[in-house]
Amino acid sequence: MNLFGAGFAWILAPRHWVTTAEGSGIGDALVHHLFLTAVSVLITVVIAGPLGLYIGHTGRFRRVAIGASNAARALPTLGLLSALILLLGIGDVPPVVVLVVLGIPPLLAGAYAGLESLDRQTIDAARAVGMTEFQILRKVEIPLAAPLLLGGLRAAALQIVATVALASVFGLQSLGTFIIDGLAQADYVKMTAGAILVAALALLLDGVLAVVQRLVGPRGVSRGTDRHRTTARDGKKPVALTQDAH
């Protein structure tokens, strides 16, 4: 446990924050770590967001999406990263590609599971009052499914921010640099400090997104689900809900 204390002390030492000839400082490493995270999350959202909403709204290609997502989960990040770096050379492109591949499955899953969880009656009602499919998506499905959609984003962002550290195995600058350098130099204090930094950043990001997730849910909806639940327990399930039950 002593090593943890030493690790914290290492982080708090101002001289470790600036980049010197000896190696990168925490400041630069953090900035580059966040940069890689932000770019990857953004690209993931641009690709998987519309795709997930399309699958969730239409119910089409659902099996293909699930299959592809599961296969992507089996892909070893380390292998993909090393292969791409050999192919494209060292730089920011290989890690971003790998991180996007990693981020797509959870985001996609959040999007279609989110839309799927909605009460079909609500959507049929929206259709009945004359909304176009796009209006249903924008005004009904997205707001109602917002917490789950954000849950997908949160899972994706978390995977990404945690995995950026792995890029340092191949010499890219991130908070993982301290882990890899520490390991190579048998400087376990530095290594522990790196581990604390990466874990702290991941927990911080997760916490922020958790708060956002709680804020985006439309007001009044939770009361609605409670009412359904009571009805179901009374055994007087509405027809649409019986089909929903497990």
């Binding site: 945690a162 550290a165 195995v169 290594m191 790196g194 581990a195 990466v198 874990a199 991941a202 927990l203």
Partner: peptide, 11 residues
């Protein structure tokens, strides 16, 4: 689950 694999193996 939030703790990255690389970190957990080291910590």
């Amino acid at each position: 689950y939030t703790i990255p694999a690389l970190v957990l193996i080291v910590v």
